[in-house]
Simulated scan of single mutants.
Amino acid sequence: MYFIHVTISALANTDVAILNWLNHHRIEVLDPFIQFITNTAYFFAIGVPVIMLIVGYSKKNKFIQFRGWYILFSILLAEIVSTILKYGINRTRPFKVYPFIDKLTAGGSPSFPSGHSTDAFVLFFAVVIVFKEWKYRLPVLIWALLVGYSRMALGVHYPTDVLGGFVIGTISPFILKNAVPRYKQQFN
């Protein structure tokens, strides 16, 4: 039991140390850009599949429609899991616990997992499943990594919160792909 307590304590200390370093070693002149990136998470997560659906239905393109719905449902699944965990675990935001962490953007709900990171990574992994070309994948990957970084640099999430968002964002599209027969048949 003592070993588990020491291990958890060491992980928590590492979590805070990484956050502190990222928060205080950011390039401050880039703060507006980092705040812009963080504010795009929800917009892109919902905007990309909605635009795909609008284009798909206006062009009567079943291929685009199907993939738009798949991305949207992947995001909704990830949001549901993230919200349940967020309020079930109810982790306090780092800037409320550690006064040396600079809070540079909004962060009101519980901390774990990062909803912004969940949205960014679920969009990326859904795009990986839907599009085989890296010309679509690479910009979304770079953006998702920047969103995850932004949540820590701006002082509103621990690294493990971002990691939790990454895990949920990774798993959700794959669960949907393999659990729903229509998606399993289409993507395999």
Rank of each mutant, 00 (worst) to 15 (best):
N13H: 09
P181V: 07
N178Q: 07
K59D: 11
F112P: 05
G169I: 13
P159F: 01
A45I: 05
K86S: 03
K103L: 08
G56R: 05
I80G: 13
G169N: 14
K184Q: 15
E133I: 10
N90Y: 01
Y183N: 10
Q35M: 04
I171E: 02
L30E: 05
L154N: 04
P32R: 04
I51M: 14
K59W: 03
I129Y: 01
I168D: 07
K86P: 04
I46Y: 01
I80P: 10
I54F: 13
P110K: 03
F124L: 15
A179R: 10
V140G: 06
S109W: 01
K103Y: 01
R67D: 15
W21T: 14
I64C: 09
K135E: 13
F95T: 07
Q35A: 04
F174E: 12
Y42L: 07
I8M: 15
W143R: 09
I89R: 02
Y98E: 06
T118G: 00
T105I: 06
V128Y: 06
G47A: 01
H157Q: 00
R91N: 01
F33W: 12
P94N: 05
S172Y: 08
S82D: 11
P139G: 06
A153K: 01
N13M: 02
I142V: 15
Y98N: 12
I51K: 11
F3G: 08
I142D: 08
F100C: 02
V16H: 08
E28M: 13
I171W: 03
L72R: 06
I71P: 07
H116Q: 00
W134R: 15
E28W: 11
D102P: 02
L176Q: 07
T118A: 02
I64R: 04
V16L: 12
T160I: 14
S114L: 04
Y149M: 11
P181G: 06
K184W: 09
V180F: 06
L19N: 05
F131D: 10
A106W: 00
Y158E: 07
P139Y: 08
T7H: 07
P110R: 00
S114R: 02
A41K: 02
K177L: 12
L138F: 14
F131K: 12
N90F: 05
Y158M: 03
L19K: 05
G56S: 10
F124M: 12
I168S: 03
L163F: 15
F36I: 07
N178P: 11
N23R: 05
Q65V: 14
Q185P: 05
Q186D: 03
N188F: 10
P113F: 03
D102Q: 15
G88S: 14
G169A: 08
L72G: 07
I34V: 15
V147E: 00
K184S: 15
N20G: 05
V140C: 02
V97L: 14
L76T: 11
P159Y: 06
P181M: 06
F124H: 08
L154W: 00
V156G: 01
V156K: 00
R93K: 07
V127I: 15
Y2R: 08
I4V: 14
N23M: 10
N13G: 09
K62Y: 03
S172A: 15
